[in-house]
């Protein structure tokens, strides 16, 4: 896989490490009333789609920047790359790239229902 780094151009994926779903940027509020439930979702549950997936990659052997890569998990094609910093800073106004838009479309199809009802754990 080749990742087209916004600053450095096309780089081999072996220079990077992956952290996982880009939703990890959306850390829940630890002081909210339902923080334990929100953190259970944040830490453990995943959409894990077959198709477009937005994910966090770290350029460990390069400029050590964090990227958001939009990738197809069925073909391994890399469709869009953005600096995670830019995405996080503009998170109120979601970045509308080609891949980001497609990924958003793919994501909204998924029901975001938890696998366990939102009552307190038994």
């Amino acid at each position: 896989m080749i990742i087209n780094h916004p600053h450095l151009g096309p780089r081999d994926a072996a220079e990077f490490t992956i952290l996982g779903d880009a939703d990890l940027l959306k850390r829940p509020d630890w002081q909210a009333g339902n923080a334990d439930y929100a953190f259970y979702h944040y830490l453990y549950l995943r959409d894990n789609p077959a198709g477009l997936h937005r994910e966090l990659w770290f350029h460990e052997c390069g400029d050590r920047s964090w990227l958001i890569v939009t990738r197809d998990t069925v073909t391994h094609a890399v469709l869009d790359v953005a600096l995670a910093r830019d995405v996080a800073l503009s998170s109120k106004k979601p970045k509308v790239g080609k891949g980001a838009r497609a990924a958003k479309k793919a994501r909204t199809k998924k029901p975001a229902k938890g696998c366990i009802a939102e009552d307190s754990p038994k």
Partner: peptide
């Protein structure tokens, strides 16, 4: 995950 999403479930997988 793909199959269980059809039942509306998100899993730790």
């Amino acid at each position: 995950s793909r199959v269980m999403a059809k039942a509306g479930l998100r899993l730790p997988i």
